[in-house]
């Protein structure tokens, strides 16, 4: 398996504050990697490096390199919007557009210039099915997405990211707003998607990390403490900090 993503000597600053310290990490293609660690350790910051979403934070500054398919994405000639078409993102809080369910899921396709109604319909349905939402909303696709429950909204957001068929998916605690049944559906989905997608998922749920991920990375106060196969992290971690964290003794 190839390295799909790579971070090389990455330092991140918000103004004076250093949020990530010299991170080096490689992500295998078609695998799920879980990022774990206590609140504020830099997981979201790290995740957002890969689709350059930190660019909108005024005080953000980065040193080092982020490679996608071997190419640096923080060089001048990179077209950020093109980059993002291949990298889907699901955010920590559900953030559907104030539009219909259909429009939400179709948006990514429409901005790529796809206008054909039949094609749109098909892709929207497929994405909603993948996100385990189709059966609940198939009769009111014209309803505003804001009228859905929080968990349903999050699945709209997942469907929205899947509809454009990216090759990488970044998920920031995608199930923190979901009930156990919806969570199970999303986990099942992640398992399915692994065949074709490279997935990075931030989670505070240790069981979830151990259930769905192939690799796990443990962050602590801006440092990458340990990165290994998930079963090794959870059964035989190298560092005591990791051990303490996954067994719930701190964090």
């Amino acid at each position: 398996m190839e390295n799909k993503l790579e971070a090389k000597n990455v330092n991140v600053f918000y103004g004076e504050f250093q949020a990530l310290n010299n991170i080096n990490m490689k992500f295998k293609e078609n695998a799920v990697t879980a990022l774990i660690g206590p609140s504020g350790c830099g997981k979201s910051t790290f995740l957002r490096l890969f689709n350059r979403m930190n660019d909108y934070v005024d005080s953000f500054r980065m040193e080092g390199e982020i490679l996608v398919d071997g190419n640096g994405i923080y060089t001048k000639d990179v077209l950020v919007d093109e980059l993002r078409k291949g990298i889907g993102m699901v955010f920590q809080k559900p953030n559907p557009f104030p539009k219909s369910i259909f429009e939400n899921v179709a948006y990514g396709l429409k901005i790529q210039g796809i206008k054909n109604k039949a094609v749109l319909k098909n892709k929207v349905r497929k994405a909603l099915q993948q996100a385990a939402l189709w059966d609940e909303v198939k009769n009111d696709l014209d309803k505003s997405a804001l009228e859905l429950s929080g968990g349903q909204q999050q699945r709209v957001c997942i469907a929205r990211a899947l509809a454009v068929e990216p090759s990488i998916i970044l998920m920031d605690e995608p199930t923190s707003a979901l009930d156990p049944i919806a969570t199970a559906k999303v986990e099942e989905l992640i398992h399915e998607l692994k065949k074709d997608y490279t997935i990075i998922i931030v989670t505070h749920n240790m069981q979830q990390a151990s259930r769905i991920s192939d690799y796990t990375a443990f962050f602590y106060m801006g440092d990458l403490i340990e990165h290994n196969k998930t079963d090794i992290i959870f059964t035989n971690p190298e560092h005591e900090r990791t051990q303490n964290y996954i067994t719930g003794r701190f964090g």
């Binding site: 955010f91 953030n95 990514g108």
Partner: peptide
């Protein structure tokens, strides 16, 4: 801001984001 983030995250340009999401 989360609306803009969602739009940018899908690869929309600034103008697409303003025109399709922020302005409406």
């Amino acid at each position: 801001p989360s609306i803009r983030a969602a739009s940018y995250g899908l690869g929309a340009t600034k103008w697409q984001t303003v025109w399709h999401q922020v302005l409406p």
